[in-house]
Design a protein around this nucleic acid. Structure first.
Lengths: 66, 66
DNA sequence: TAAAAATGTAAAGTGCACTATACATTTAAG
DNA sequence: CTTAAATGTATAGTGCACTTTACATTTTTA
């Protein structure tokens, strides 16, 4: 699964730290998500989508699966 | 976070076992989700939404959070 | 009403999502 | 060019999402 967190973050001109605080996780978590270390939880995906005012599916890209 | 998995499953008249196989998890996982033991991962939420042909937000209800 | 099908409970184990802390590297700005 | 801000790397630890197996209870159907 891929995501467009970095894209949306750049568009909104905010820092990783800003986003982390906004969705209540650590900066490490944002870095890990942006760099594809692992996937977000459903709850975090939702918070990020709400923050950017888009749908979960707009940020998280589900491809080659089931 | 709540979810409407059981509702959608009943509407589609399929069993927990059927759904479990369809989204490639164990029956235990479906039971646990339906009974609110824990939340689905983003990937599983997506598979379930695709299976029922609806959006993630139609099945998973995010309320009192951030 | 008895057997089968569906649902639920229990419990131990694995891996990943996320935290926390510390430091190193890159980018931006005076 | 030098400092500060932003981004990244590393590592150890915690809890939860999910598995597996086994059995118990409820619901459905012949």
């Amino acid at each position: 699964m891929k995501n467009r967190i970095k894209e949306y973050r750049k568009q909104n001109k905010i820092t990783q730290d800003d986003l982390a605080r906004a969705v209540d996780v650590t900066r490490q978590t944002i870095i890990s998500l942006e760099n594809g270390k692992y996937n977000a939880s459903l709850m975090l995906a939702h918070k990020i989508a709400v923050y950017f005012k888009v749908k979960i599916e707009d940020i998280f890209i589900f491809e080659e699966e089931e």
